[in-house]
């Protein structure tokens, strides 16, 4: 790792070890611990995770080369093929609804907070509060609230004269996934709010002032000036929401169990992956080969999206 000193060219004091070599050794010593940790416990496992999908597995003992057999089983053999498709649509639906509900509300709150009305700082702090809570705490808390008989949600509905709307939110296949998505949004909505708010506050006042003098209404200002200038923030939130939606695990696991009850109505790729790797999909033993194949599919989806997003961001920065 020898090279040319840039900031230190001037020095030439004699030492027992030539400075160039000592410097190289220091650099190596500084880098070694981090490189070792990162290579051993992130880079290498990620690469082997991909490779594992190409082998046969007996329990967690690796067998011979399998080619694409694991993938063919994942996409073509019951129950994997069916579970996979169902889980994928649940992840996709989670992404779409989270974009609309959570991030839509985030944008609304950011716009309202940017107006700087009464208590904006306090609201900001309150909205972000659930983001620091463990998803296990959030999941269990809402599971109690949503209990069909004793939960606060149905009792509140009854109190408001809307008892007819009360239902087993988490037990009904029609409402279970949407309910989970709403609980997730409750926990996360402060995050896009803060990101959008920071973006809006970075817009120079002159732009808005000029538009206002030209007679633009607040709706037009939002659509024509604020929203286009928020593109980088929106882009980041879309990427993070996508990664979050396709990595979804804790909340479905804690609230609906490892199979995504009821009847797989809240099954997602993360749960399916976990079951294939450590439990069992329907009946049978863990299937590490298929589990690894699911990981590769999820990895590809996430990499593709965040890659495209990053590319878009860099392009915009180059233009600006």
């Amino acid at each position: 790792m020898a090279g040319v000193a840039v900031g230190t060219r001037a020095r030439s004091a004699p030492r027992r070890v030539p400075y160039r070599i000592a410097r190289g050794l220091w650099i190596a010593a500084f880098l070694a611990p981090a490189l070792l940790l990162f290579s051993a416990f992130v880079a290498y496992p990620i690469m082997t995770a991909m490779a594992y999908s190409l082998y046969r597995w007996d329990g967690i003992v690796r067998g011979g080369w399998a080619g694409t057999a694991n993938f063919r089983r994942l996409f073509g053999q019951y129950p994997y093929s069916e579970r996979m498709l169902v889980a994928f649509w649940h992840n996709a639906w989670t992404f779409v609804l989270t974009m609309i509900i959570q991030n839509g509300l985030g944008m609304l709150f950011a716009t309202l907070l940017a107006a700087g009305g009464w208590g904006a700082r306090v609201y900001r702090a309150i909205f972000f509060m659930p983001v620091v809570l463990s998803l296990v705490v959030v999941g269990f808390l809402w599971e109690l609230f949503l209990n069909p008989v004793w939960g606060a949600v149905n009792k509140l509905l009854a109190l408001a004269g809307l008892g007819a709307l009360a239902r087993p939110w988490l037990g009904d296949p029609h409402t279970a996934l949407v309910t989970l998505i709403l609980v997730n949004a409750w926990r996360w909505v402060g995050f896009p709010t803060i990101v959008f708010l920071a973006g809006i506050q970075a817009i120079p006042d002159e732009y808005l002032e000029a538009a206002r003098l030209d007679g633009a209404g607040s709706g037009a200002i939002f659509r024509r000036i604020v929203l286009p200038l928020l593109a980088p923030q929106v882009n980041i939130i879309v990427i993070l929401t996508f990664i979050g939606a396709f990595n979804w695990f804790e909340l479905p696991y804690v609230m609906q169990g490892v199979t995504g009850e009821p009847y797989h109505a809240t099954d997602v790729l993360g749960l399916l992956f976990y079951r294939a790797a450590f439990g069992a999909v329907d009946t049978g033993n863990p299937d590490v080969g298929v589990g690894s194949a699911i990981a590769v599919v999820m990895f590809a989806l996430i990499l593709l999206t965040s890659g495209l997003g990053a590319l878009y961001l860099r392009q915009r920065e180059a233009e600006a």
Binding site: V4, V6, A43, A49, N247, V288, F299, I302, L303, S306
Partner: peptide, 29 residues
């Protein structure tokens, strides 16, 4: 410090920033 491989090592670390490490749970286990 500026040295040969600086950018490469930086990029190597950076590549881990978006990687969902849980997908490597089988090899990690």
């Amino acid at each position: 410090y500026r040295f040969r491989g600086n950018d490469l090592i930086f990029l190597f670390f950076l590549s881990g920033i978006m990687v969902p490490i849980r997908l490597a749970i089988i090899p990690l286990f």
